[in-house]
Simulated assay, not measured.
Amino acid sequence: MAFSWTRAIAKALAPLALAVCALHPDAAMAAKNTDPCKTNAKSAACKAQQSKKSPSAKKPASSKSASAKTSSARKAQPAASKKAPKGGKQAVARSGSARKPAAGKSGKGGKGAAGRRAAAAAASAAMPPPAVSVRAEAAALRSSTAYVQDLESSSVLFAKNENVVRPIASISKLMTALVVVDANLPMDEMLEITDDDVDSLKHTTSRLRVGTRLSRGDMLHLALMSSENRAAHALGRNYPGGLPAFVAAMNAKARALGMTNTHFIEPTGLSSENVSSPRDLARLLRAASQRPLIHRYSTDSEYEVEINKRTQTFRNTNLLVRKPDWDIKISKTGFINEAGECLVMLARINGRDLAIVLLDSQGKLSRIGDAVRIRRIVQNEVALASLQSGG
Results as ranks from 00 to 15, higher is better:
37 C>K: 03
37 C>A: 03
39 T>A: 14
40 N>W: 02
42 K>C: 02
42 K>L: 15
43 S>L: 04
43 S>C: 03
43 S>I: 04
43 S>H: 03
44 A>G: 11
44 A>S: 15
45 A>Y: 02
45 A>E: 10
45 A>K: 02
45 A>W: 01
45 A>V: 00
47 K>V: 10
47 K>P: 01
48 A>T: 07
48 A>C: 02
49 Q>E: 06
49 Q>D: 05
49 Q>A: 06
49 Q>R: 00
50 Q>A: 07
50 Q>I: 03
51 S>H: 12
51 S>K: 08
52 K>E: 08
52 K>G: 03
53 K>W: 07
54 S>H: 10
54 S>I: 02
54 S>N: 15
54 S>C: 05
54 S>E: 05
55 P>V: 10
55 P>I: 10
56 S>P: 02
56 S>H: 13
56 S>Q: 11
56 S>C: 08
56 S>I: 13
57 A>R: 03
57 A>G: 07
58 K>W: 15
58 K>I: 13
58 K>F: 12
58 K>Q: 10
59 K>W: 14
60 P>C: 04
60 P>W: 13
61 A>T: 04
62 S>A: 13
63 S>G: 06
63 S>E: 14
63 S>A: 14
64 K>C: 02
64 K>Q: 09
64 K>Y: 11
65 S>R: 12
66 A>W: 07
66 A>G: 06
66 A>D: 12
66 A>H: 08
67 S>M: 12
67 S>T: 12
67 S>G: 13
67 S>R: 10
68 A>L: 07
